[in-house]
């Protein structure tokens, strides 16, 4: 337990010192929020837009926190070194997810601040709490996705793949254009993306509703599936090569 706690604290500390990464997760979504707010001239749904951009920032931070760092740690041998300490696989996984969740917080704070100050979003304290909870809990499947990317890709491939996947998930999940604008087979498929499940839950919360059970269950299913995959890879990799089976 102390090992898990110590490693989590270590990873969280490293994330918080990675200011360049955190600034990117804050600055771009904030600028986009202000831009969309301006072109909608007060006619749009400022709260819904806040959820969309908080989601965009969250996806960037949650995926990037691990997808960007793990390949470098593998290349330097640090993962291998960790593998031969008593830190259990589950401990490693927990710390990496906690670290990614911490990385989500600065972007969430900045977007929410923009929502209040520029978008004049007014929510009850319970709604704010639910909204923060949805963003943080909703980040979990994306954190596991980032972990998987970090495990499967080398440092050169991780960055473009991460960027591409972030955009696909954001557009596909309807963060920027509603799913109703998609043609039919695509629309149903897009509805299953974790981005859409998160967005639906978040929109419900800021509109004063409870998140739909189906959306929460869908997000949980994504998280469990991705976690199981990441864990099995951690147990099989020797920490030196990208994948032991890929030789």
């Amino acid at each position: 337990m102390t090992a898990l706690f110590a490693y989590t604290r270590f990873e969280v500390m490293r994330t918080l010192r990675n200011t360049r990464f955190l600034v990117v997760t804050m600055a771009m979504p904030a600028a986009m929020y202000l831009f969309f707010l301006r072109i909608s001239r007060g006619m749009g749904d400022a709260a819904g837009l806040m959820v969309a951009l908080a989601g965009f920032s969250m996806i960037n931070a949650a995926i990037g926190a691990n997808a960007a760092t793990i390949p470098a740690e593998r290349a330097s041998g640090w993962l291998r070194q960790l593998r031969i300490t008593p830190l259990p696989a589950g401990g490693w996984l927990t710390a990496r997810i906690a670290q990614a969740m911490v990385a989500v917080v600065p972007g969430l704070a900045v977007i929410s601040l923009c929502g209040v100050l520029a978008g004049h979003v007014e929510l009850s304290p319970a709604q704010w709490a639910a909204y923060v909870l949805v963003v943080l809990a909703g980040s979990i499947p994306f954190s596991f996705l980032g972990l998987l990317l970090g495990q499967l890709l080398d440092a050169q491939a991780a960055q473009p793949v991460q960027g591409l996947l972030t955009m696909l998930l954001s557009f596909g999940g309807g963060l920027f254009f509603p799913l109703t604008t998609f043609p039919e087979p695509l629309r149903s498929a897009a509805g299953l993306l974790p981005t859409h499940l998160f967005f639906a839950a978040g929109q419900g919360v800021v509109a004063g509703q409870l998140p739909a059970a189906a959306d929460v269950a869908g997000l949980a299913a994504w998280a469990v599936a991705l976690a199981a995959l990441a864990l099995s890879i951690w147990s099989r990799q020797d920490g030196r090569r990208v994948l032991t089976v890929a030789r």
Binding site: N18, E73, S76, Q81
Partner: peptide, 16 residues
């Protein structure tokens, strides 16, 4: 924790 290893690697992790 009964085995210690010093593995040949590049640099130590950043941010620490």
């Amino acid at each position: 924790g009964r085995v210690g290893g010093m593995l040949q690697t590049g640099s130590l992790p950043a941010g620490a």
